[in-house]
C-alpha cells in the first residue's frame, strides 16, 4: 500500500461523495485522475483491504429497533442453539464468547414487539429460564465510530 492508496482509502472511509460521479470528486480531492482512483479502489477490494462499500444507517431513526442479546447454554447445546438463533434473518451477528453467557447476538427488527417475540421464541425453543437470556438494548450511546462497523473481533 503506497501513499496514494492510503489517501484513496482515507477519502473512501470518510464521506463517500453523494454525487453521480463520486470517484471524480475523490480524484479531485486526492489530486489524480478518476481512472487511477477507481483502479486503486478495485485493487483495495481485491486484496481484501476494503471489505465492502456500504451505508451505515441509524436503524432507530429509520424506525427500526435493534438490540444486543445473549443466552447461556450448556456446551453440548451450543451448535443447536446457534443454528436456531442464526436462522432468524433479523439476527445480523452472533458470536460464541468465553463468558457465562456464551452466545451473543445482535438483532434488527421493525419494532420492539418483534424483538421481544423473537427472544421469547428462542427462550422457549432452547428451554431456557428467563434468567438465562439477556435483552440489552442501548440506553445511551457514548461513541460509535462507523468506520469500525465491521471490525473483526478477537479470535
Amino acid at each position: 500500500m503506497d501513499d496514494m492508496d492510503r489517501k484513496v482509502l482515507a477519502a473512501l472511509q470518510h464521506d463517500f461523495p453523494l454525487s453521480q460521479e463520486p470517484y471524480k470528486v475523490i480524484a479531485e480531492k486526492v489530486g489524480t485522475g478518476v481512472e487511477e482512483v477507481f483502479k486503486r479502489v478495485r485493487a483495495l477490494v481485491d486484496t481484501g483491504a476494503i471489505r465492502r462499500l456500504g451505508a451505515s444507517l441509524d436503524s432507530r431513526k429509520l424506525g427500526y429497533r435493534s438490540t444486543l442479546a445473549a443466552v447461556r447454554v450448556a456446551d453440548g447445546d451450543i451448535d443447536s442453539a446457534s443454528a436456531a438463533i442464526s436462522a432468524y434473518p433479523e439476527v445480523t451477528h452472533s458470536y460464541l464468547r468465553n463468558s457465562e453467557f456464551n452466545i451473543w447476538f445482535t438483532l434488527i427488527a421493525a419494532n420492539e414487539a418483534r424483538i421481544a417475540e423473537i427472544l421469547e421464541e428462542i427462550r422457549l425453543h432452547l428451554s431456557l429460564d428467563s434468567d438465562d437470556i439477556l435483552n440489552l438494548p442501548v440506553e445511551i450511546l457514548f461513541k460509535l465510530d462507523a468506520r469500525f462497523n465491521a471490525a473483526k473481533t478477537q479470535k
Binding site: L9, L12, Q13, H14, D15, F16, L18, L44, T47, G48, A49, I50, R51, R52, L53, G54, A55, S56, L57, D58, K61, L62, R97, W104, L144, A146, R147, F148, N149, A150, A151, K152, T153, Q154, K155
Partner: peptide, 25 residues
C-alpha cells in the same frame, strides 16, 4: 444524511489489513 438516518457511506476496511487486527468486547 441531513436528518441523521444516514450516518455515512464509505468503505468498510478490514482491520487485519490496516494493522488493527484485534477487537475485543
Amino acid at each position: 444524511d441531513a436528518d441523521g438516518r444516514l450516518r455515512r457511506i464509505g468503505a468498510v476496511v478490514s482491520h487485519v489489513k490496516v494493522g488493527l487486527s484485534v477487537g475485543s468486547m
